[in-house]
Design a protein around this nucleic acid. Structure first.
Lengths: 135, 135
DNA sequence: AAAACTGTAATAAAATACATTACAATTAAG
DNA sequence: CTTAATTGTAATGTATTTTATTACAGTTTT
């Protein structure tokens, strides 16, 4: 598992806190404690998903592109998710085994349900809700 | 993300299918298409959790130690889970940043809820239910 | 023109996951 | 009582994924 979700949410929370002011990738990276290049890559994704926008050049940086109340954490999860929640074996199971030949379709069923529950749980909170927990 | 959940569930399904007969790690590995040593390691964990038992020596192998109707998939998940569902950054966020200093506790809150939903979703099915989908 | 940024590619390092080899210990069966 | 089949386990190697680093072109502000 990578740490894209915590990183993205950390970025969004900092941007929310900045109240519309642009924030540099160096500042974000300093709070998260990771390399600024990773932050910029993650911001590309957040931008692609319409959560943030950025300004190039001196004094540039990123800022929220939507109201924090209109970003729910389920959407954030969907925007960053790469791997399967339940894990996935990349070796094909034995097609000559009656169990092996069918298991992937049944595992997929489980995964879809599990992922929906997880997203549903996250979607109960917006970025505004999450940010309001900080004091 | 590793593939311990699919591997464990595959093992359990095969053992269920074997109707109490012992099944060798070589046979299990052949259906899953992974190395038998990995299967044996995974079986150690399944045994530790009371799901299976094994017999050493010639003609040995593993078998279910509980009724398949008494193993729910949420328990299986809990038995194999290693990583955090939402991912976790192992670098400590900046303790001098008001957001950085508090974010982990709030991420933990999210993770607990998300993980509970996921486990709850899996717990709707027992191994018997899962195995009954194969035909 | 200089400075402070973003965007992006390329490469390296570190961490994790999986595979393989090897062999001792156990058990069954002739 | 020897052989064969199996588990248990350690040690090591390989592949994959994740993160970090370096470098620099392009953009914008001052």
């Amino acid at each position: 598992m990578n740490s894209r979700f915590p990183i993205s949410l950390h970025i969004l929370t900092l941007l929310h806190d900045a109240n519309g002011e642009v924030v540099s990738s160096d500042y974000l990276a300093g709070s998260i404690n990771i390399n600024p290049v990773l932050v910029r890559k993650e911001i590309i994704n957040l931008r692609k998903n319409g959560f943030v926008d950025s300004k190039e050049g001196k004094g540039g940086g990123s800022f929220l592109a939507k109201n924090a109340a209109d970003i729910n954490l389920g959407e954030v999860y969907k925007a960053v998710k790469t791997s399967n929640v339940l894990g996935k074996n990349k070796n094909e199971p034995n097609p000559n085994c009656p169990i092996g030949m069918q298991i992937n379709q049944h595992l997929d069923g489980l995964r879809i349900d599990a992922e929906n529950s997880l997203i549903h749980s996250l979607a109960k909170q917006t970025l505004a809700d999450f940010a309001s927990k900080f004091r």
